[in-house]
Design a binder for these strands. Sequence first.
DNA 1: CATATTTGTTAGTCTAATCTAACTTATTAT
DNA 2: ATAATAAGTTAGATTAGACTAACAAATATG
Lengths: 232, 232
Amino acid sequence: MFHHIYYIYILIYNMPTQAKENYLKAIYLLSRESIDVSITELSKKMCVSKPTSNNMVKKMEERGWLLYEKYKPIKLTTKGEKLGALIVRKHRLTEMFLSKVMGFGWEEVHDIAEQVEHISSIVFFDRMDKILGFPTLDPHGSPIPNREGEVLKVNYLKLGSIKEGQKVKLRGLENSSKDLLLYLNKKRIKLGTVLLIRHIETFDNSFEVLLEDNSTIVLTFDVCQSLLVEEI
Amino acid sequence: MFHHIYYIYILIYNMPTQAKENYLKAIYLLSRESIDVSITELSKKMCVSKPTSNNMVKKMEERGWLLYEKYKPIKLTTKGEKLGALIVRKHRLTEMFLSKVMGFGWEEVHDIAEQVEHISSIVFFDRMDKILGFPTLDPHGSPIPNREGEVLKVNYLKLGSIKEGQKVKLRGLENSSKDLLLYLNKKRIKLGTVLLIRHIETFDNSFEVLLEDNSTIVLTFDVCQSLLVEEI
DNA sequence: CATATTTGTTAGTCTAATCTAACTTATTAT
DNA sequence: ATAATAAGTTAGATTAGACTAACAAATATG
Ligand SMILES: [Mn+2]
Ligand SMILES: [Mn+2]
Ligand SMILES: [Mn+2]
Ligand SMILES: [Mn+2]
């Protein structure tokens, strides 16, 4: 008699809220940059207290999105991993749409996408995808997971690991902070920019780099570690 | 010493949450179709119980968005009216963007806009506005409030009040329910469609209407009351 | 190894937004 | 004018998501 209501209840119960979507995404992203995801790391990423994320992690385990044992690191289940990837997909598709269709700079898109990623309409993102011609990378060079939540493995090198005399192309960023993006704008560096390592200063590890317009710029080692490049 | 924190606190406190934005919009829309907005009307529009909206209305009064006395109708303040109008602005700009830029049908846009309207980025909507060429009407013919929350007064007639023999153009809809929109799609009627009232059946008040392609259709009086037209 | 530090957990509190049950006030109909 | 009905309110409970204070477990350090 009330089977329908029961199933609708289960459906709604299993839908992540906006907060839980942000946690899922954070855990997903943390787990692909470090082996172990701890409560402390998650708290930092989410800007919440440790009891808050501890509590949230317990609730997410109940929903079958992750495995958790006291004092042990957090592991996403297959279901949780897919959910996380699909939120990242929505985030990065949005960034691409904002950049390519709406004309926003790569330093403007993240904050808007942070909100748009929670829109539940599937057709909305599918339409973005279609209009963009099914892109595989976002405006910062990060891969866009496909509809199944699978990610293309990209294998770029940090500029910091490149030897003197080598020529490389900028392909991605290790961190896409607004500050870094604005700095790169100022230096006229964007995805695809060709960089020739003219000289590496042994004293402070700074890189003297020749651009295609024959201008030379100096980048600190820190900045170099944030730039993902491909040798050409 | 802590003045900054205090001001940030006040700022955040005065930001409407997503729920409160929906209430503001509901009250705003109700107050422009009826003189008095009651708790019961609001509860129905919001699909919540009467104690829920009663309680919410009290909180909104504290924030200075409306005036409320027990057992009396709800009146938006100038501030509340503007806030409400600006949410409607975001909603209708979004609908227009979804329709004109992303290619969605007029029956698809409302549900998506219901979520997008809560995005807080001002530049996001300003960019939509610019890309669309600063439209004044949404895909259903409803006016888009300007950045100050002011609305262009439109003065259309219900098709139901038009006399036999008259020629009119569809300009808007009294209600934009998905069912009505799908029905109009099926009858190939859209905004701008020219309709000639061939005959009004006295028995049931149904309208026999001639379209520009010389086909004739019959519309019930109910449907005619939902169509806002301009005589030509 | 013992202690200090970091990490994680528990317990208890708070606010926003919702509900139901029970009651009161206002309106409508006889 | 009274009774019936509708509208509005109060009280009390619940859930999600956050916090702090206090304590416990694990890890690092001298
Ligand atoms: Mn981003
Ligand atoms: Mn987000
Ligand atoms: Mn709408
Ligand atoms: Mn909404």
